[in-house]
Design a protein around this nucleic acid. Structure first.
Lengths: 228, 228
DNA sequence: GGTTCTAGAACC
DNA sequence: GGTTCTAGAACC
């Protein structure tokens, strides 16, 4: 069913595209050897006189008579034109001779045809399909992120400074507190001695102090001790 | 000097590319009318029998005898093939007839040739020339920046918390300091009254206090007052 | 998957 | 800018 075209060369096996089976038949056919045939080595084929070939041979196998369409198909299947080095204008006044080749199109190696794959259609792979507009959008985003990072960086620096100043103030306040505590202790010490003196003198007076009040919040900030 | 090819049709004026002057000459030349000539309306031209045309006419004007190269040049200059609707297989068994047209290629309007411009070479505009590899590199950079920003964000949050705790400790310490100051004041007040009492009793003693010492650093942290 | 017209790209 | 080989893309 997948074997259209009356090539009739007994091409079985794998699913070989119609173009390849037709091409094989075309090259093999001795009747058309004056226009299309294997090269002597069997690794390529020649087309002579494109004008006659396209008008007399192509229509028998394809739905057209254009050499360009034939070449397009060859390229689509990975065939490459064989380029010849200039022969310095020898005897032959240049015969109309075009040669094509494909690593899996070899005379006598019919089974290799299965390895010739048609190039995938041009439906883009989506991956690289980026318009200039989309690229600009990405670059714009990057620019925005750059700006945001600079903003954040300066904010971090400001916070760092604020933090350092706070640590200094905390240290200062703690020191101040310790100093005051010393003062308080000395005062109390002094008072005690004074009271003792006064007691000797018979003086009695109530002392309204709240010495324990200021040390009750100490636990709140213990986890802040600098460790860095 | 910029006028090669013996067109000789008296093409003066602007800098018309050689291909266009040659093409004009070719189409005008009555000797080649059986192979290439104006259409009856003069808005396009026909090529008959590509085989003979490419082998007999092209070499006389160009450095090749390939129809494909001729068509490539036509397309390069913006010519378009004129596609004909199928004539339902009338009398003519299809003559080898190809027609091309360009809005500025009009019979008798030679001066219009200057308006036909060769399409710019395929040297990419650099802007959209991005390989998948380069795109991936950019996307990778964006990803890295994203990660960096997340790191910074969490660091900012940590610093913010630390800062808030510090502000709380500063407030606490200030309050503690104020409390202590009250204590100290009360102690001093008490002492003063006590001393006065003692003076009455004839007691004399030197008081070794350093009350001014703890308030001398106050200016260091004045700029930290919270304003938010 | 086949056919057609046009364009890309390398080389000259 | 010209020539050549190959590919893109639309349409069938």
């Amino acid at each position: 069913m997948e074997h259209p075209g009356g090539g009739g060369a007994g091409l079985g096996g794998g699913n070989v595209p119609a173009f390849l089976t037709k091409l094989w038949t075309l090259v093999e056919d001795p009747d058309t050897d004056t226009l299309i045939c294997w090269s002597p080595s069997g690794t390529s084929f020649h087309v002579f006189d494109q004008g006659r070939f396209s008008k007399e041979v192509l229509p028998k196998f394809f739905k057209h008579n254009n050499m360009a369409s034939f070449i397009r198909q060859l390229n689509m299947y990975g065939f490459r034109k064989v380029v010849h080095i200039e022969q310095g204008g020898l005897l032959k006044p240049e015969r109309d001779d075009t040669e094509f080749q494909h690593p899996f199109f070899i005379k006598g190696q019919e089974y290799l045809l299965e390895n010739i794959k048609r190039k995938v259609s041009a439906v883009r792979q989506e991956e690289v399909k980026l318009s200039a507009d989309e690229v600009n959008k990405i670059l714009n985003d990057v620019q925005l992120m750059k700006g945001k990072q600079e903003t954040i960086d300066s904010r971090i620096i400001a916070m760092k400074h604020e933090n350092e100043a706070l640590w200094r103030e905390v240290a200062s306040l703690r020191q101040k507190h310790a100093q005051q505590q010393k003062v308080v202790n000395k005062l109390i010490q002094f008072l005690v001695s004074l009271v003792q003196t006064n007691r000797i003198l018979g003086v009695k007076r109530k002392i309204p102090l709240m010495l324990n009040d200021s040390s009750s919040r100490k636990k709140n900030v213990q986890h802040l001790d600098k460790t860095t």
